[in-house]
């Protein structure tokens, strides 16, 4: 899921002050931001109080199913049409994808209320870790199921780097070096002998902006999967 954290209120306040917004509608997200405890109903209500303490009126609020779903968001906007129409601005407590979906669905100025930080594994309730960066060129087959692109602070495909000391990471010194873990696990699985250095990554597999249309795939236009047109 997409992990978010609260945005600095001073920045939100400055955004709203800049356009002289007195009335604000708040949109949350029933999916990731609810799980992250950043954009569910409790956080939306906290934001309402904060805005009111700034002397603003909150015309209404909503927590739809998924903030990044265009159809769902348009439906949510229709349900709250009057409240949004009477607002000067919309504050979205969702990831950047949700903010943009909302910005496309309404004519009002839309502002982010959260910072989007990573694609997170749920370690346990309320505890998340970044394990995948969605690079489009997976190396987990060669790295014993441990992603160096994401979990090595330098993102090195081949390591350890010169800073590894007693098996520990140079940058995050309380953690085991990811490359030590990879090599250990490959050895335990009897795969160390065949492990060769990984070649440079193909960043054309992950050109921005990503795009995928399942109808293209059904028609055999697989290259649309990468959003790059250069799949090989």
């Amino acid at each position: 899921m997409i992990i978010t954290r609260p945005r600095d209120w001073a920045r939100i306040r400055a955004n709203l002050d800049e356009i002289g917004a007195k009335k604000v509608f708040i949109m949350g997200c029933g999916e990731c931001a609810t799980m992250s405890h950043t954009g569910g109903q409790p956080e939306v209500l906290q934001a309402k109080v904060a805005l009111e303490q700034q002397g603003r009126e909150v015309t209404g609020w909503s927590v739809g199913d998924v903030a990044c779903h265009s159809g769902g968001q348009r439906l949510e906007v229709r349900k709250h049409h009057g409240e949004i129409e009477s607002a000067d601005a919309v504050l979205v407590l969702a990831c950047g994808a949700g903010v943009q979906t909302m910005a496309d669905a309404v004519d009002k100025p839309v502002f982010p209320g959260l910072e989007s930080v990573f694609l997170g594994n749920v370690v346990r309730h309320g505890q998340f870790e970044e394990r995948c960066q969605m690079c489009g060129d997976c190396v987990l087959d060669r790295t014993a199921g441990i992603c160096p692109v994401t979990t090595c602070p330098k993102g090195l495909l081949n390591g350890p780097c010169g800073g590894m000391w007693m098996g520990k990471c140079e940058v995050l010194t309380d953690r085991e070096c990811v490359h030590v873990r990879i090599r250990r696990r490959l050895a335990e699985q009897g795969r160390a002998k065949t492990a060769a250095p990984l070649p440079p990554k193909d960043y054309s597999k992950k050109l921005k902006p990503g795009q995928l249309d399942l109808r293209d795939r059904a028609l055999g236009h697989e290259k649309a999967d990468t959003g790059t047109g250069s799949d090989s």
């Binding site: 602070p153 330098k154 993102g155 090195l156 495909l157 081949n158 390591g159 780097c161 010169g162 800073g163 140079e170 940058v171 250095p197 440079p200 990554k201 960043y203």
Partner: peptide, 22 residues
């Protein structure tokens, strides 16, 4: 490889590491 930028004097810099030393 190079030291990580967060230990240097421009800690806001993006570490490139497009290639590694090997």
């Amino acid at each position: 490889t190079g030291d990580d930028p967060r230990g240097g004097d421009h800690p806001q810099a993006k570490g490139v590491f497009d290639l590694d030393s090997t």
